[in-house]
């Protein structure tokens, strides 16, 4: 998330893991946490580290929702599409968000500030509709609240803790 921070070299990130396939997903998670996404170079490095064909890693990386193969925005908005949120109008919320950000789900805005995605369920159904932004939860949203939040973030360029 913190793009200003110095990132560690990938070999340093993965070195602590034993060289076994069972650690693949953990490695991918940590590499993504470090760089924000999984680059081709990262995957190739992991491939030779684990002695696992890159086709297998690419298959895993494209299977799970969590993994990104392109650099995401600095502010990652994830709208919850769980049942409770759906019943409370999260589809409209998503529509508003697409309009406000001017991007579709899975895209990153041109300035690299925002990226938009949906998540299956954040598990905070009682405060539906909800979204997660850079790891923080926001609940009981409506169009107005969303507008306010996004404008604030756009102005400051970051999400306050």
């Amino acid at each position: 998330m913190e793009t200003t921070q110095q990132t560690r070299p990938i070999d340093e990130v993965i070195a602590k893991y034993p060289k076994a396939r069972e650690h693949l997903i953990s490695i991918l998670q940590e590499v993504q946490a470090e760089y924000g996404f999984l680059s081709t170079e990262s995957i190739n490095r992991i491939s030779s580290y684990l002695n696992l064909p890159s086709s297998k890693i690419f298959g895993v990386a494209t299977f799970y929702n969590q993994f990104k193969l392109n650099a995401p925005g600095r502010i990652q908005v994830a709208i919850c599409r769980g049942t409770a949120c759906h019943v409370k109008g999260s589809l409209n919320l998503l529509d508003s968000c697409r309009q406000l950000l001017g991007i579709e789900v899975g895209q990153t805005s041109k300035d690299g500030l925002f990226s938009l995605e949906t998540v299956a369920c954040l598990g905070c159904c009682s405060i539906a509709p909800a979204m997660m932004v850079n790891g923080q939860f926001f609940g009981r949203l409506d169009k107005k609240k969303l507008e306010y939040l996004i404008e604030t973030w756009r102005a400051s360029g970051r999400v306050e803790e």
Binding site: E22, I25, Q29, V60, F63, N65, Q66
Partner: peptide
């Protein structure tokens, strides 16, 4: 072990595949 976002991994054989580092 952290899941990586796949509903199907709630199914036990898929879950085990995921723990083994495979597609769930």
């Amino acid at each position: 072990k952290m899941g990586a976002g796949a509903f199907v991994c709630g199914e036990e054989t898929a879950l085990m595949a995921s723990v083994e580092g495979r597609r769930g």
